[in-house]
Structure formats: structure tokens, C-alpha cells
């Protein structure tokens, strides 16, 4: 049974009295996989900050019934010169559950190592993050986001630095994780998004929820989400689910 993790009703969000998002209503259920698209400045980041509780809504209601959230920020927000190892980065994802007073022992380390193996970078656990490539850092940050087995995983452009090989693995991993947790993913890559997500939300000043992963150029236009459809070969009229 899917339970409701988030319920946003007529939410306005912004900074210094200026609204970036208006009248946003959205429900997030425990089995959702929502792809968020929209132009820069359209409010995608503001929506994520509202979900993470970093900013309070200016108006409207956010009901949160979500004990834990894992979050993958954009890699350039991380200070790569900070003296911290890969294993410690992953362990930091347990701060919410494990708390301030408890030691981080073998059990926590094993969980972190398990995530690193899944992401294929277990051998890098003792490295400091300054020694990693952009893709490796992103994998480590993904491990931090999923190590606590959160009810909701929020991903901000997870495919920015990831090489083609890992991109396939990443989405396969997300598909598996989606059996246990809800996923909200911001992406510019509409082609990839429609292949893996279940539903789409267009964010441009407000939010248009599209309860399917099939979306046409006309619908996007209607939602006020002028997205460039990056495709190969002939430009299709409709973006379809991938065929297996």
C-alpha cells in the first residue's frame, strides 16, 4: 500500500517577499517516481528547498509525513577541498537516524560500504574527496543520499557529471530503489526522464502535474514548460516510453 509522504496545497514559495512559486499543489506517495522539468529560474530549486524544509512556504500548506529524506545536491555545491574521506561522506548520510551522541561503528560502516559497492566505488572508500573525479564524487554523494534508506530520495540533476556507462547503471539503480522509496528527480534531460520516471511535473512559476511519463510537445507548451527536446535522428512529435 502506498502511503502519502507529502501533500502540498496551494503553496507559495520564494525569497524576501517575492514569490517564485505560486499555487503549487502536489502529492508525493511512497511509490512515486516523479521527474521535475522546467526552465532555469522556474522554481525547481525552490520546490526542492520547500520539500527539504530549508525554507518555509509563504502561503499554503505542506503536510509532511515523511520520516527521512535523502538528497543529492548538484556536485558543484560541494567543497571538494574539504578534508573528508569517501566513507565519511557516506556515513554523514546517517546523521538523521544515528544522531549526535552515538558512535559510528562497524554496523554503520558496513551499511556505508554496501552502498559504495552498489555504486561501484567501494575501492575508493579511504580516499579524500579531493582525489575523486566528478563522476566518482557524484556516486559518493548518491551513496550518502541512500545510505539511510530514506522514504523519499530527492535528486538534483544526477546525470550532470556522470559518464555514459554509469548513467545506465544509475537509472537501473534508481528503478530498484524506487521499489522501496519514492524518488523526485530534477533533470534537463527529458529523453532520459520519460524513460525512467512514472510521472512528470512541469515547474515554471507554478506546477503542472502530468500523471504519466508520456508527454507531447504540445502538452509541454501548454504547461508553459518550453523544454528543448534533445533527440537523435528525426525529431519525434511525441516523446515515448522506451521499448524493451
Amino acid at each position: 500500500m502506498a502511503t502519502q509522504l507529502f501533500s502540498l496545497t496551494d503553496v507559495w514559495g520564494g525569497y524576501d517577499g517575492r514569490a517564485v512559486l505560486r499555487e503549487v499543489s502536489l502529492h508525493i506517495n511512497s511509490d512515486d517516481f516523479i521527474g521535475i522539468i522546467g526552465p532555469n529560474g522556474g522554481g525547481k530549486t525552490t520546490l526542492m528547498r520547500l520539500l527539504l524544509g530549508e525554507i518555509k512556504p509563504m502561503a499554503g500548506q505542506i503536510e509532511r509525513n515523511c520520516p527521512t529524506i535523502g538528497y543529492l545536491p548538484q556536485a558543484q555545491q560541494i567543497d571538494r577541498e574539504f578534508p573528508i574521506t569517501v566513507l565519511e561522506v557516506v556515513l554523514s548520510g546517517l546523521l538523521g537516524q544515528h544522531g549526535l551522541w552515538n558512535r559510528y561503528g562497524r554496523e554503520q560502516r558496513n551499511r556505508a560500504m554496501e552502498c559504495l559497492s552498489i555504486a561501484g566505488i567501494a575501492h575508493l572508500y579511504g580516499r579524500s574527496i579531493g582525489e575523486l573525479s566528478g563522476g566518482q564524487l557524484q556516486r559518493a554523494l548518491l551513496c550518502r543520499a541512500m545510505v539511510s534508506d530514506p522514504a523519499l530520495l530527492i535528486l538534483d540533476e544526477p546525470n550532470t557529471y556522470v559518464d555514459n556507462k554509469f548513467e545506465g547503471e544509475l537509472y537501473e539503480l534508481l528503478r530498484q530503489l524506487n521499489q522501496r522509496m519514492a524518488i523526485v528527480m530534477v533533470s534537463h534531460d527529458l529523453g532520459t526522464i520519460t524513460t525512467y520516471v512514472k510521472t512528470i511535473a512541469c515547474v515554471n512559476g507554478t506546477l503542472h502535474y502530468h500523471p504519466s511519463n508520456h508527454i507531447t510537445a504540445e502538452q509541454l507548451h501548454g504547461y508553459g514548460c518550453p523544454i528543448q527536446l534533445i533527440t537523435h535522428g528525426e525529431v519525434p512529435h511525441t516523446v515515448l516510453q522506451s521499448h524493451s
Partner: peptide
């Protein structure tokens, strides 16, 4: 550990 985690990425630590 918490000191290290907050210093490294206080935004993430705050979200947790």
C-alpha cells in the same frame, strides 16, 4: 563525526 559532517556540508546536515 557530527562536527565533521556539519562542517563538510551544513546544508545536508541541516536537512537530516
Amino acid at each position: 563525526r557530527p562536527i565533521l559532517f556539519v562542517a563538510f556540508d551544513s546544508r545536508y546536515a541541516m536537512s537530516q
